Simulated assay, not measured.
Amino acid sequence: MTMEILPMTARPGARRLQTLRCLGGVPSETGDDVADEVPVALQYNGLSHAVMLATPLDLEDFAYGFSLSEGLVDRAEDLRDVEVEEVERGIVLHVEIASRCLARLKERRRTLAGRTGCGLCGLQSLEQALPRCEQRVAPVMLGASALSRALDGMRSRQLLQSVTGATHAAAWCGTDGEVLLLREDVGRHNALDKLIGALARQQADATQGFFAVTSRASYEMVQKTVRAGVGALAAISAPTALAVNTAQAAGLCLIGFARGLDWVAYSATERLTLERLAA
């Protein structure tokens, strides 16, 4: 059976495909919604920088968030303009940034020119791959009830996940656990970048809350959270040792295995109010 794309799309960011489904041993032809994933190229002042596989939603947020979380710009005002261009094989984000930021970007590209087939070579390249995090985040106090409320609130707002089952979400939550803003993407890094970009574009004070993500807490996720100035990150899966070390150095409250009333805190545990919750 040849699978084809049906003209109807259930939700932006998803495509409806014709499928053959077997339930209880009985096969039948039906339609299924799958998450869209396309190459998204980021160009800065006409200079190609990166190509990411991403869900083609909230792309302006993505451009802002990626630029900020990767340290390509210092603040949202350094981005002058973002244009989204659909091309034959994907999407190009044309980003205009301040000239001083472009000079930094060119220097980064020059130092990464030593990439080889076996990975990064040279001390300078390793420093680029794992830059030392000198920033410290503003402390934020959280209660266990806030974590539980945030996780519950995220589930009902993951609209793309509800129809495809294939996307991650990143949410900015108030200290009481209310989900204030959420972004989705097939990539966990992309979802967090989109959230950071949306906060920057809305000029929200990201320090007055915490991030919650439906993924593991890798070094990159911690680094992006720290660069956004957010004081706590809660993930439904595990952190890595490097992520924990980075969080400790930055004063970030890092929480893993956050599911319902259960969680594990790995750093800045003094920021958590340990009230006992009824099951």
Rank of each mutant, 00 (worst) to 15 (best):
G209Y: 00
M221V: 05
I196V: 15
V213S: 04
R132H: 08
R149S: 11
Q135T: 09
R104P: 05
T207L: 00
R188M: 10
R115W: 09
Q203I: 00
A234G: 13
D176Q: 11
Q223L: 13
R108S: 06
H168M: 12
L199V: 11
I236K: 11
Q158M: 15
R132Q: 08
A144N: 10
E178Y: 02
V222S: 01
A232H: 04
G122H: 06
E127N: 07
L130T: 04
D193H: 14
I236Y: 04
R188G: 06
T225C: 15
T164H: 07
Q208N: 05
I196N: 09
Q202M: 10
R155E: 14
A200R: 01
A234T: 13
Q128Y: 04
A103V: 15
D185V: 10
G209S: 02
A171W: 01
E220R: 15
G177T: 05
R109C: 10
T167V: 15
L182G: 10
G117T: 12
I196A: 12
A212E: 01
G177I: 03
R115C: 11
V140C: 07
E107R: 14
L130A: 09
L130D: 03
V213C: 12
G187S: 15
L159Y: 10
R157H: 09
V186T: 14
V222P: 01
T111G: 02
V226D: 03
G153H: 06
G117V: 14
D185R: 11
R183T: 12
T225A: 14
F211V: 14
A200S: 06
K194M: 11
Q128T: 01
A166S: 08
T175I: 11
L181A: 13
K194A: 05
R104N: 13
A113L: 08
G177M: 10
E107L: 10
V186F: 03
L151M: 13
A235F: 05
G209D: 02
A228S: 12
R110L: 09
G153L: 06
A235M: 07
L123A: 10
C118M: 13
T116P: 00
G187P: 02
W172Q: 10
N190E: 14
Q128N: 03
N190L: 15
K106M: 15
T116A: 04
G165W: 04
A150K: 03
E184V: 08
F211T: 00
Q223F: 02
L160K: 02
Q161H: 11
R157E: 15
M154F: 08
P131M: 00
G187L: 05
L181E: 11
L120V: 15
R149Q: 08
K106P: 05
L147T: 04
A228G: 06
A166N: 07
V213F: 02
A238Y: 05
A129I: 01
L120D: 06
L195H: 04
K106T: 12
V213W: 01
